[in-house]
């Protein structure tokens, strides 16, 4: 059963959606815990979906499962990507197919230069997508352009991946990688966490420039303020492993005013009924 997500958009979409999450139940490998308890969500290109929710509600787990993190176990349900079973694919294959996850905590790779890392990554996804490998000159040109687009100091690309980067630089570096890898589905996992208002604005500007009719976004955040900058088409509120409510961008504002307890109590009321 899908939640009704937007009053004016026909739902479900008539053609095949980019991402369809159906009744997804997820636990942790070797542990008797259920984190996602039946999530339904459809994201299409040219759409920005925000998922909000309190800590521990399962937002980041959803992001990790879509990207293919192995420590999670899908107990029930399915994820379709272009109508195909996404759960069959290895994480690197998902990246090749156009799924990108901007990490909440970007990982440091000591001694691995950004340039090298990106070159391998870009050429790996390009090859999988049937595009030609970039020449060194083309690649560097692309690095310059995309770094400028997301307002990243191109000198950072000469350093080791995320090593010694400030919090803001790490997050902008994620958006820079998004720009380089040109995904069809971009997932931003709490990209706003740990950023001051200036950094938040810079990161958001980068994301907004990357919005496109060929690309869908899933923006995961704890706070409404990110959505002032990255204005979503749809907002979903996740509580206790389920999407408790969906709506337009106004839902985020309402949520900011009333707090998550408002959803919890109405959710409780629904469950009791």
């Amino acid at each position: 059963m899908h939640a009704r997500i937007h009053p004016t958009t026909p739902y479900p979409p008539t053609n095949m959606a980019l991402l369809e999450v159906k009744n997804l139940h997820v636990g942790v490998e070797d542990e008797d815990i259920e984190i996602l308890k039946g999530v339904d969500l459809t994201v299409d290109t040219d759409e920005v979906h925000a998922i909000m929710g309190p800590n521990g509600s399962g937002k980041s787990t959803l992001a990790a499962v879509i990207a293919g993190r192995e420590e999670y176990e899908v107990l029930d349900g399915e994820i379709l990507y272009d109508g195909e079973d996404l759960l069959e694919l290895e994480p690197e294959e998902r990246a090749e197919e156009g799924i990108f996850l901007a990490f909440q905590y970007p990982v440091e790779l000591p001694g691995v230069s950004m340039t090298n890392f990106l070159k391998e990554a870009v050429n790996s996804v390009r090859e999988a997508r049937g595009q030609d490998e970039l020449s060194a000159a083309e690649f560097l040109q692309m690095v310059r352009e995309r770094a400028e687009l997301v307002d990243l100091n191109a000198d950072l690309t000469k350093r080791s991946v995320n090593e010694g980067f400030s919090g803001g630089e790490k997050k902008r570096n994620e958006i820079f990688q998004l720009a380089m890898l040109e995904p069809r589905l971009a997932i931003l996992d709490e990209t706003d966490s740990g950023l001051d208002i200036d950094a938040l604005q810079q990161v958001s500007d980068g994301v907004n420039k990357l919005r496109s009719e060929d690309r869908g976004f899933l923006v995961i955040t704890h706070y409404q303020r990110l959505l002032d900058y990255i204005v979503p088409d749809y907002v979903h509120v996740m509580v206790d492993g389920r999407i408790a409510r969906s709506g337009g961008k106004d839902l985020a504002i309402e949520l900011e005013e009333k707090g998550y307890d408002w959803i919890r109590s109405s959710e409780g009321a629904t469950a009791a009924a």
Partner: peptide, 21 residues
Amino acid sequence: FYCHSRGLGEEEALKLIVNGF
């Protein structure tokens, strides 16, 4: 996982990490 999520397979990822080391 970070490397995988950028499209790098097992071997490519390890090569990068070890060469960096």
